Computed example of a mutant assay.
Amino acid sequence: MSAQARKSPLRASQGTTRSTALRAIPSQPDQSDIRQATLSDYATHLRASNNKHGRPYQEKTVRSYVESVKALDAWMSKAGVEGDFTSVDVITLNLFFRAYHQEHEQGGTNTVQRNLRPFFLWLEEEYDHANPYRDKKFQRYAPPSAGKPKTLSADFISDLLKVTGNGSPRVREFEKLRDHAIIRVLTEGLRAEELLSLRLDSLHLEQGLLQVVPLKDARATGEGRVIPVQPKTAVALTRYLRARESHKLSDSDWLWLGTRNRGHLTYSGLYRLLNRRAQEAGYDSVSPHQFRHTATDDMLSAGMSGEDVMTIQGWKDPTMLRRYAADMAASRAVKAVRKLGDRY
């Protein structure tokens, strides 16, 4: 009987194989290969480092930063720019952003410009590279000016709540109770990621409060800001929690669970949920972040001080307050003047 090849009893280490393949450098590497190796090192640096708050970078942030560097690498290859990333001076970087702006306009260019800043800070520290962001000739692209108002109408929110049961105690369907509670919580002004990060211990419904973990920060006991919720929001959450008890994954710490006994809700699931409900109510698509603009306008219209609004929304810089408040500033000003009535 012919001898058969013996199989290894050892567990295959896919991670080691993949890592070796990534770090293998050709005998005659071109500049693109060197840039790819640098990019790999940069991604490792981000995952092994903390942000300015002293906490690990979120994987979403890492991907955004890496994708921006990939865009620069692709442009260098297409434009025939020789050299690795340390050859990029202020003139080269300005040319890249000019080309990027032609295809992605103001908003996208501003985002990539912000995302590349940490990369050149890293090159400055690791390779003693002259940081082009510090050069006076560096051309900055400002954020896009505010367009049409992002504030949602009261009729839209009302109709959205109606198609999810309108808070009726007779509703027993898990999906409707969950969606209704989510919409209610969004009206409190939470960011989408903050809402999705809520866990069971984030709720303090007997006091009518939610504890929101800071965005981009690691979860730690006692951290995060406290948000008072409307009475109807507390009721909606209570009813959802009762329905949640019958879910297969009810032991999970995550607050929001998927339908058909699936795991915790993701951003794509939240986006589909909102737009499905919007279509049922007869409206166009909507972004979860528009609820945050609306909550800011609601609080300012109710006479809350800018300082209190900043506290609730989790802003330390008044620039964000002005940016969000700009959507309906003219409307609020007109209403304020009309309240004065006849002054003479």
Rank of each mutant, 00 (worst) to 15 (best):
H204M: 10
F119N: 02
M328N: 10
D327C: 00
D89L: 01
G83P: 11
V235Q: 13
Y324V: 01
D128N: 12
Y141S: 02
P144H: 00
P132Y: 05
H293C: 04
E245W: 02
S68L: 06
G147H: 06
V213A: 15
S32L: 13
L209Q: 03
K136Q: 10
K339L: 14
V171D: 01
V163G: 10
K60L: 11
F174R: 01
K7Q: 13
R178D: 03
E103K: 06
F96E: 05
L274K: 07
L257I: 02
S77T: 09
M320F: 13
Q14P: 01
S87N: 04
Q290H: 05
R178C: 00
G83V: 11
D84F: 01
S19L: 13
A71W: 08
G54D: 04
T20E: 15
P9V: 04
T44E: 08
E307M: 08
L203H: 04
S285R: 13
Q58D: 11
A79I: 02
D251E: 14
R140F: 12
E193P: 03
G258W: 11
E280S: 11
R114G: 12
T44H: 08
T86S: 12
H101W: 06
A3D: 08
E125M: 07
S64F: 02
S68Q: 04
S252G: 08
N275L: 07
S49L: 09
E175R: 15
E103P: 00
R199L: 01
Q279V: 12
Y283S: 10
S168A: 09
T233Q: 03
M320G: 07
T294Y: 10
T17C: 08
H247F: 02
H289T: 02
Y240H: 05
Q28E: 13
E126V: 15
G306I: 09
V171I: 14
